[in-house]
Write a protein that binds this DNA or RNA. Structure first.
Length: 443
RNA sequence: GUGGGCGUAGUUCAGUGGCAGAACGCCUGACUGUGGCUCAGGAGGUCGCGGGUUCGAUACCCGUCGCCCACCCCA
């Protein structure tokens, strides 16, 4: 007996059939919507050269990259030359730089693949998880943000989500407000960590955070005044206040205004909430930043933003880009808890199971199964000549809706008995009519 | 990385310093051609792991590992 643990490593999961069906249901809808918006599929390797990833995500991100040691005789050095991909955005930037001459001037791609982070697992947080990314390359137009936001909201709507909102902010609004409040640039990141908690611990809590982080009291008050937003506040009202704080001609506020105005004509209509306290940790964002949160979950369902100089880090020449990432498992966590999956997703593996009467009936059982499959049914053949009751119990345990009983009596007459396991009804029909009999009662 | 909770049958969980329990599930039979309902019987446990206290530890103490929750961060 082996003493090796049979559990998968912490933060990873095995997906049993029911779970795979749920995942594929979500992925199918995500892909369908993304393609409807003109995004094209891309896949990249699970691992990258380590220099590709280092220095792109900020200090925390660097720390969470899964590194791969050099192989062979170099292994003892402890040096890493490869790393598992941390997100899908940086590999995309590498691809854009590598194939610049083969890709269209404006390129929209989607990518649904696993990523890995050396993080501590928690509810809705894994060390291996799937991201569903869309990114639009090549344009600085706010129409790109509106398009991306619209696609993401469309996906959630198609999946059955209601009442979610999209928090929107801008990197330059963030720094502008901190400057205006008198927070010196070296303290910006400290202040942002505190402000990011505004929706969780209220103004009083943030005020205390500021004190412990050594930020000037007067500056802290000015921050709170400009960052706090009423729950139901409309984007236009928030933008008006931002203009009064940063100036009527502020470019970042104007950009947000354009995005809001344009997105009103997409599936994101009515979903956008301007939130000046939204920060986001990834360091490559340069413009608009956004995030989708739901009350059920501590973290977000997804996040994204504009990153106009990430491609330039590979290419030496900046290429504008904007994208969004949905977290597959977080969507599934919420959908499972709210019972949002259609009943058919958790349904039976097969439409009909053919029983095995005795050793003499095996060949005919296989032949019957083949006939039914030719008619498009999903068919299982019970593999052993157990008692009929045991075979029926097995079928019932798997929620199989029909059982085809091929006993000696039926075989002698070229018939088969079809039992509907849901109603208990049973009819003996000619072999050739079995498939149609089942199909017409299948629903 | 920080704080808290929980680890007992396949599953969900009781339990007590002195023989290891229930429900559900599973297996067998009543029912040699029929699942669900009923009844009778049965299998299944290193009480997470290691150490300590004790005549005796599943229980109390320490450590460790795992899982869950909150924080941090994020998808």
């Amino acid at each position: 007996m082996s003493s090796t643990s049979t559990k998968p490593p912490a933060g990873t999961r095995d997906f049993l059939p029911d779970e795979v069906r749920r995942r594929e249901h979500v992925i199918r809808i995500v892909r369908q919507v993304y393609e409807r918006y003109g995004f094209e599929p891309l896949e990249t390797p699970a691992f990258e050269n380590i220099e590709t990833l280092l220095g792109k995500y900020g200090e925390e991100g660097n720390r969470l990259i899964f590194k791969i040691l050099k192989r062979g005789e170099h292994e003892t050095s402890g040096e890493a030359d490869l790393a598992l991909r941390y997100d899908l955005t940086v590999p995309l930037a590498r691809v854009v730089a590598q194939y610049q001459n083969e890709l269209p001037r404006f390129w929209k791609r989607y990518q649904i693949q696993p990523v890995w982070r050396a993080d501590r697992p928690a509810r809705g947080r894994f060390r291996e998880f799937y991201q569903c990314d869309i990114d639009a390359i090549g344009s600085t137009s706010p129409a790109v943000e509106a398009d991306v936001i619209g696609a993401v909201c469309d996906v959630l709507g198609q999946l059955g989500f209601e009442g979610f909102s999209l928090r929107l902010n801008h990197r330059l609004v963030l720094s502008g407000l901190l400057d205006a409040a008198g927070v010196p640039p070296p303290q910006h990141s400290e202040a942002l960590v505190a402000l990011d908690k505004l929706d969780k611990i209220s103004a009083g809590g943030v005020r205390a955070e500021f004190v412990t982080r050594g930020i000037d009291g007067a500056a802290a008050e000015r921050c709170l005044a400009s960052f706090e937003v009423g729950q139901a506040e409309r984007p236009d009202d928030t933008l008006r206040r931002l203009r009064s704080a940063l100036g009527e001609q502020d470019a970042a506020v104007g950009n947000l205004q354009s995005i809001v105005t344009l997105a009103a004509h997409t599936a994101a209509a009515g979903r956008i909430r301007i939130d000046p306290s939204l920060a986001r940790g990834l360091s490559y964002y340069t413009g608009a930043i956004m995030e989708i949160a739901v009350p059920d979950l501590a973290g977000s369902l997804g996040g994204g933003g504009r990153y106009d100089n990430l491609v330039g880090m590979f290419l030496g020449r900046d290429v504008p880009a904007c994208g969004f990432s949905l977290g597959l498992e977080r969507i599934i966590v919420v959908m499972t808890e709210r019972g949002m999956f259609p009943a058919k997703v958790g349904g039976a593996a097969v439409d009909v199971m053919v029983t095995m009467w005795n050793e003499d009936s095996r060949a005919e059982g296989l032949a019957l199964a083949a006939e039914l499959r030719r008619d498009g049914l999903r068919v299982d053949l019970y593999p052993e000549a157990d008692k009929l009751g045991k075979q029926l119990k097995y079928a019932a345990g798997r929620s199989t809706p029909f059982v085809a009983i091929l006993g000696d009596d039926e075989r002698a007459k070229g018939m088969v008995s079809i039992k509907d396991m849901r109603s208990g009804d049973q009819h003996t029909v000619a072999r050739g009519e079995a498939a149609e009999h089942i199909r017409s009662r299948r629903q």
